[in-house]
Simulated scan of single mutants.
Amino acid sequence: MSTKTLETLQTIKTLNHISEKGLNVFKENYILDDQSENPDAIVVRSFNMHSLDFNPNLKAIARAGAGVNNIPVEKCTEQGIVVFNTPGANANAVKELVLTTLMASSRNLFAGVAWAKTLENEGDQIPKLVEAGKKQFVGKEIKGKTLGVIGLGAIGALVANDALDLDMDVIGFDPFISVDTAWNLSRNVQRAASLEQLFANSDYITVHVPFTKDTGGMFNKETFSIMKPGVHIMNFSRGELVNEEDMAVALEDGIVGKYITDFPNENVLKMKNAVPIPHLGASTQESEENCAIMAARQIKEFLETGNIRNSVNFPNAALPYTGKRRVAVFHQNVPNMVGQITVAISSFDLNIADMVNRSRGEYAYTMIDIENKINGDVTPLLEEKINQIKGIVTTRII
């Protein structure tokens, strides 16, 4: 593997239109080349990368968004390519749309507007028809009602806090809530001991969890039976969280009053009282800019320092960068790996100034700062020696 230093130009390839504010992060020491066949890093939004072959020089892929279904993450891990996403960068955009649809659906705004549009040819009769017809769209106020928030990450926490400011009661469920999120969450958010408790006590439910084998189809006939009759369900996470056959029946029977989803398909469009949103959750100018900037900064930091933040396949690891030569190694998470790496370094009479080692499942990531100045001739030899250790995936000397 070739070794690049900070003074060497590094190539960034984009596979979608990426906000200029994000690309402006790459100034000195970078080349932006959409046609490059040998980039150091790729920035992507929704482009499907599963059929692509990756060159040995590729070190990182950053998704300007949260979901990484369009990226072959397992393949990247095996080849030592770190994959980043941008959690929280689009949180405000999604939060605003959740709260918008919460109020609009509760007031039957979508159906009312659609009905009003049908009166365009009625001329002077329109005001009279409006007054006569508006009673069919009488809705409910959200003030004093209970909102259940499933998943209290970046988006869920914002939704919960703002719903409190709208004088709603808020109950949340997230068994994996992080310390950082807990600090940002209002103490007035009630904690549900179980999903069943949240389902039974909520007038409105919004879900903000990823699609996994455990969350797939979590909204189904069984869980609908626990909920309050006429509950409104908002899904801005993944369509697969809902059993659509069961949802159609629940809507027809009035068990579910409204289903608001950002993931319309043929089944959803046929459902009674479904509100299909054309995947607009993160579609704001500000969100696209925030995601692009965050993705670019993560790639830049990784290429220049080896530090990893918000990776979906590598362990997050950070070591203050002081300008010393740094050895960054991605390897299998097996005993004595760090010892073998340090032995290889010491064999060149190099002293270790600082180091960090983090693991994630079957793999681990080690960064070691070298106290001595490394002669240019030694760099490829050291890299080669480390790569000869069984279990090493990639080695980079910064």
Rank of each mutant, 00 (worst) to 15 (best):
Q340F: 08
V207W: 00
D34P: 10
A157R: 02
L198V: 08
N55M: 12
A193F: 09
M271T: 03
T342P: 03
L185I: 15
M168P: 06
K270Q: 14
G139I: 08
V338E: 11
Q10E: 13
L166T: 05
T322C: 07
G67F: 01
T181G: 04
D33M: 07
E252F: 09
E28R: 11
N372W: 05
A318R: 08
A248T: 12
V334W: 07
E20M: 10
A114D: 11
A64M: 06
E20V: 12
D262R: 03
M234P: 02
G88F: 05
P315Q: 13
A192Y: 04
G156E: 05
F176G: 01
G112L: 01
V356A: 13
G144W: 04
Q79K: 15
Q340W: 06
A160E: 07
P175N: 10
H232T: 15
Q285T: 15
S311M: 10
Y30S: 04
S2L: 13
T223I: 09
L23I: 14
D180G: 00
A295P: 09
Y259K: 03
T146G: 05
D174L: 00
Y363W: 13
H208D: 07
N372L: 07
T8W: 13
S202I: 02
R45T: 10
F47M: 12
M294S: 15
L32Y: 11
N201G: 07
T77A: 10
G80E: 04
M234W: 02
N92A: 14
G112W: 02
F348C: 00
V209S: 00
V393K: 03
A200T: 10
R360A: 05
A93I: 05
M103Q: 10
T5E: 11
L241A: 09
G156D: 05
V83S: 04
A295V: 10
L381S: 13
A91G: 07
N57R: 14
S46E: 13
F84G: 04
K95F: 06
N220I: 01
E28F: 11
T322K: 10
G239A: 03
S186N: 11
P175M: 08
Q10H: 11
L97W: 03
D162S: 09
L166V: 08
S51C: 11
L381C: 13
T342R: 05
S51D: 15
H279V: 02
T215P: 06
I12P: 03
V82Y: 05
A328V: 11
I142S: 01
I308C: 02
S19A: 14
A66I: 15
I308P: 02
M247I: 05
L164C: 08
N69H: 11
N265H: 12
